[in-house]
């Protein structure tokens, strides 16, 4: 499935499907929007830092949504913030991916009943690729979520699916 698992047999030419090449490029440099919301954002920053090192998967925080491929919704999404997140998402270029990190962003979390100000799941506003459970999830869990997203991208196809 991978691109470089075939040995060099003839010079230094690698033959691969265009799809595989594109998917490999995309999944290997998922730049994220430098954006955090609550306690999950602390775990996300820990994941970026040297101990867990998000950068070894090609994840680099970018200061503008126009540079970014993924947005990690890391924390409680208030209704006020949801309108802003929608705008950030719309400013990202295609292809774009979303990781919903933690219970709040997945479903409202502890605010699910009495949180008059909390959106009960970011998937009510923007489409989510991977949900990472936890409150907050440990960095390992976020890395697992990212690897799941990479698997999803690796399986993507340029061919339009026939109905």
């Amino acid at each position: 499935m991978g691109l470089l698992d075939k040995e060099f047999t003839d010079g230094n030419i690698v033959i691969a499907k265009a799809e595989d090449l594109m998917n490999w490029a995309r999944l290997s440099s998922l730049w994220q929007v430098s954006f955090g919301l609550a306690c999950c954002a602390i775990e996300m920053m820990a994941t970026s830092a040297s101990h867990y090192d998000f950068d070894r998967f090609g994840v680099i925080p970018r200061p503008s949504p126009r540079h970014a491929d993924i947005i990690i919704i890391s924390g409680t999404v208030t209704l006020k913030m949801a309108t802003r997140i929608k705008r950030l998402y719309e400013q990202m270029p295609e292809p774009k991916y979303i990781i919903s990190m933690g219970s709040c962003s997945n479903s409202g979390g502890p605010y699910w009943e009495h949180g008059y100000h909390v959106l009960k799941g970011i998937d009510r506003v923007i489409p989510v690729d991977v949900y990472v459970p936890g409150c907050p999830p440990r960095p390992e869990a976020l890395l697992e979520g990212l690897i799941k997203l990479q698997e999803k991208i690796r399986k993507a196809s340029l061919v339009k699916k026939s109905a």
Binding site: L79, A82, T83, W112, Y116, L119, K120, R124
Partner: peptide, 14 residues
């Protein structure tokens, strides 16, 4: 106080 059903097209209750 009673929370609204929708805010800017987003459903508010769980």
């Amino acid at each position: 106080y009673e929370n609204p059903e929708f805010y800017h097209g987003m459903k508010v209750p769980y």
